[in-house]
């Protein structure tokens, strides 16, 4: 798992961590039950303060991505990945729906929109 932090980004550091760990879990790089580095160790490795990593783990816990067992550390939670994926899928759907609405306002045809989407999709590879 890689975690890359930018001190210059306007996004708070704990959010950067949360997001990257979530991505790793969804992509399957971290499997359920797998141990995460301790809060203190992660802080040391990333050269950031303990309270920042603690906050990140708390957010992850709140969202159900990890579980913390007192005295043992934090683990990727067993809750099914599918559910998490579904959540994200729904977010994608919502954004697409928005794009469709906007297209309709601008009189863009479905064909044109599909073409646009294809272009964007391939660009992003």
């Amino acid at each position: 798992m890689n975690i890359i932090i930018s001190n210059r980004s306007p996004e708070p550091i704990y959010e950067q961590i949360t997001k990257q760990i979530k991505d790793s879990i969804i992509r399957g790089e971290l499997s359920p039950g797998e141990a995460l580095p301790s809060i203190r160790n992660l802080a040391k490795q990333l050269q950031i303060s303990v309270i920042t990593t603690k906050r990140a783990y708390e957010e992850l816990e709140k969202d159900g991505f990890i579980e913390t067992v007192g005295g043992k550390g934090s683990f990727v939670s067993g809750q099914n990945k599918e559910l998490l994926k579904e959540k994200r899928l729904k977010a994608v759907e919502e954004k697409l729906a928005e794009a469709v609405m906007e297209s309709k306002v601008l009189d863009i045809s479905l064909g044109e929109l599909q073409e646009m989407l294809q272009l964007l999709y391939e660009e992003g590879k």
Partner: peptide, 12 residues
């Protein structure tokens, strides 16, 4: 010095 402090704080 900062590294030493981080080492130290591995002990909570």
């Amino acid at each position: 010095i900062l590294d030493i402090m981080r080492d130290l704080l591995q002990d909570e």
